[in-house]
Amino acid sequence: MTFIPAIDPDIEYPDSDGKPMADNTEQYEWIVKIKENIEILFADSPLVFIAGDLLWYPVQDKKITGPVAPDVMVVFGRPKGRRGSYKQWEEDNIAPQVVFEILSPSNSLEEMERKLLFYQRYGVEEYYLYDPDTNNLKGWLRQEEILSSIPQINRWVSPRLKIQFELTETELEIYSLDGQKFLTFIELSQKAEQASSQLEQERLKAEQASLQLEQECLKAERLAEYIRSLGIDPDTL
């Protein structure tokens, strides 16, 4: 049976639920790290929308439980751009296919169970839940209309994102399929500086080589002039 929401034109859809994006620095850093690295991964894909802590309204229904603001959500088939919230009926009715949640001490079991049910009901294909305090990662994949637990999450590759999750003894590491590790802003900045420094070194080496070649050519020309001054054609030598 198809679910038909009770549409009310007077319903308000606020862009904020009044809750902070994160409860602590570690949770915030993980949200930003995952969101921004996925942004980098799909920078050249105009129809992949990625957001962090954005309210998602799946239907126009005042009876809806929620809405929910996934810590990170990825929507394939929708253009990049600014949004105050994600109103699904204004987005070709495309639900976020992938969502991430980063646990914090304030998240209750009841809250996380409610989110899982929400994601299952409204079409999420992949759901990942990471607890940085315990270094525990859980994942769910939609199978036959149900979000089923992924039994072996370590080294799991996301079908949609094509990224691999690796659990070390201390923390979660995420890699793109070309081996690029998800990095923090500081690590990305350091990597960019190293690349810039390496390019500068290569440029200086090229300049030095060019200068050395120019000096050798000048020496050769001076030698040729000296030989000519002796009445000898250097080309016959």
Rank of each mutant, 00 (worst) to 15 (best):
L213S: 14
Q215K: 15
P79K: 00
D8Y: 11
G66W: 03
L116F: 04
T236H: 08
V75H: 03
Q201A: 10
L41W: 14
D131Q: 11
G52N: 07
P46T: 01
F100T: 14
K162W: 03
P9K: 04
D10S: 13
F3P: 15
L54Y: 06
F3G: 14
K115E: 08
L117I: 05
K138F: 01
E111S: 14
V48A: 04
I40Y: 15
F185M: 09
P132N: 04
Y13R: 11
I150Q: 09
L54E: 13
L103G: 12
D178M: 05
P151T: 02
W156Q: 11
M73K: 00
R222N: 13
I7F: 10
I150D: 15
S106I: 08
E187N: 02
S85D: 07
I232Y: 08
A209I: 04
T168S: 15
R114Y: 04
D23C: 14
S149Y: 04
K19L: 14
P58V: 01
N136E: 13
S189M: 02
E125G: 04
S189A: 03
K87Y: 00
Y128S: 08
V48F: 06
E110S: 11
K87W: 00
T2P: 15
E221M: 12
S85W: 00
P46S: 06
E12L: 14
I186A: 14
N154A: 03
I94W: 06
R114F: 04
L147H: 03
S158A: 02
N154P: 12
D15K: 10
K63F: 14
W30S: 11
V157S: 06
D235N: 05
K191C: 00
N135Q: 08
S148L: 10
W140E: 11
V99R: 09
Q143H: 06
E110N: 12
V59Y: 05
P58R: 01
I102P: 15
T25F: 09
W30I: 05
Q190R: 08
K33Q: 15
S104T: 11
S45N: 12
L177K: 03
L117N: 13
E113R: 12
E36K: 05
K181H: 05
L230G: 07
T134Y: 10
L167Q: 12
E110R: 12
K162L: 09
D133S: 06
Y86W: 02
I174T: 13
S196K: 01
R155F: 04
L211R: 10
L213F: 07
I40T: 12
G81I: 00
K80G: 05
V99M: 13
W156A: 07
E202T: 00
E126Q: 07
S210K: 09
V68R: 15
D61K: 12
S229R: 04
F42N: 06
N24C: 13
P151C: 04
N37V: 06
G231D: 14
K80F: 05
E90D: 15
A22Y: 10
Q215Y: 06
L188C: 05
D235Y: 00
G52I: 02
L230A: 08
K35W: 12
S149T: 01
D92H: 10
I153L: 06
E187K: 05
G123R: 02
E26V: 14
E171K: 07
S210I: 07
I38H: 13
E110W: 03
G84F: 00
T134S: 11
L147M: 03
F76W: 05
D178C: 08
P46Q: 02
A209R: 11
I34F: 10
N93I: 01
Y86P: 12
A95L: 00
